[in-house]
Design a protein around this nucleic acid. Sequence first.
DNA 1: TCAATAGTTCAGTCATCATTGAAACGTAGC
DNA 2: GCTACGTTTCAATGATGACTGAACTATTGA
Lengths: 132, 132
Amino acid sequence: MTDAPQGIDGVLAIDEARAVAAFAALGQENRLRIVRVLVTAGPDGMAAGRLAGAVGVSGTNLSFHLKELSHAGLVRSRRAGRSILYSAAYPALSGLIQFLMRDCCQGRPEVCAPAVAALAACCPPTRDPSHA
Amino acid sequence: MTDAPQGIDGVLAIDEARAVAAFAALGQENRLRIVRVLVTAGPDGMAAGRLAGAVGVSGTNLSFHLKELSHAGLVRSRRAGRSILYSAAYPALSGLIQFLMRDCCQGRPEVCAPAVAALAACCPPTRDPSHA
DNA sequence: TCAATAGTTCAGTCATCATTGAAACGTAGC
DNA sequence: GCTACGTTTCAATGATGACTGAACTATTGA
C-alpha cells in the first residue's frame, strides 16, 4: 500500500513481493471466482452473503478467502447497514497486468504486442482513462 | 493445450482451470523469478543450469519449479546438446492477461481502460502482432 | 567403453493452506 | 435491553506445496 503510482491513473505500481502475493491469491479456484464476480459486479460491490451464494462456498470459507484477497490488495470492503460490501480493487488488478507486461517489454516489445492487441480488441481504450 | 486460439495471433485463450493453474504457478517467489528471467531472456531461452544460478536455487529445486511451470503451460523446453533450454510461453502469458481483462470488460469497459492505457504506454502496439 | 557433465526423479520432512463447525462479534429493528 | 441477522474469528483436521540430499538417466568427448 506504500507504492507510488507510475504516472498512469487507475493503475497501481507493484513490486515483486506484492505480485507474488496477488498471483498466489488468484491461484485458488474459489478466490479467482470471487474476484471475477466482484469485477463484474462493478464498483458498487456485493454483500458477503450474496457473494457466498454466487461463488458457492460457506460464509466461513468466504470470509477466509476475502481476508486473503484483501491482504493481497485485490479487494476492498465497506460496511452498509448490517452487510459488508466487497468490491474489486481495479487499480491493483491493472497493476498486476502491467507488472506482467513490464517483464514482457524488457527489450522485446514484439513479444507483448499480441497481448496489447488482444486487450485493444477486448476493450478499446477510451478517451478518459483516469477512472479507478 | 487443447484450447483453440481466439482470433488473435500470439494469444492463447484459456479457461478458468487453466488460469487458476497459471496464477498458482506464478504465485511463488522462485517461480515468478524464473518466468521473469525467461521472459527477458527471449525466445531462445536459457539452459537450466544458468537459470538455477540466475534465480538462486538448487538444481533439484529448479527442476521442481520448472515442472510446475511447464505443467501450467507457462514455459517450454527443448534439448540442445547436453543442456536443456527453457523459454517462456509468451502466448500463454498473453492469454492470462487477456483472461483477467476479459473479466474487467464485462459490461464495464471504463474499468479496464487504465490497464490498456498502461500497456499502450509500456509497449506501443506494432503493426504486426502475429509474433508468438 | 569410461568418465564427466547436465538435469531429472525419488523419498522424506517441514511448513503452509483450504475447509469445517462452533462460538463470538457487531448491527438493526422491536 | 433483547432478539434476529450478517459476518468474522477460533480451533482442529486433512491435504497440498516447498525444499533437500542421494540416486538415476541422458548426452558428450576421450
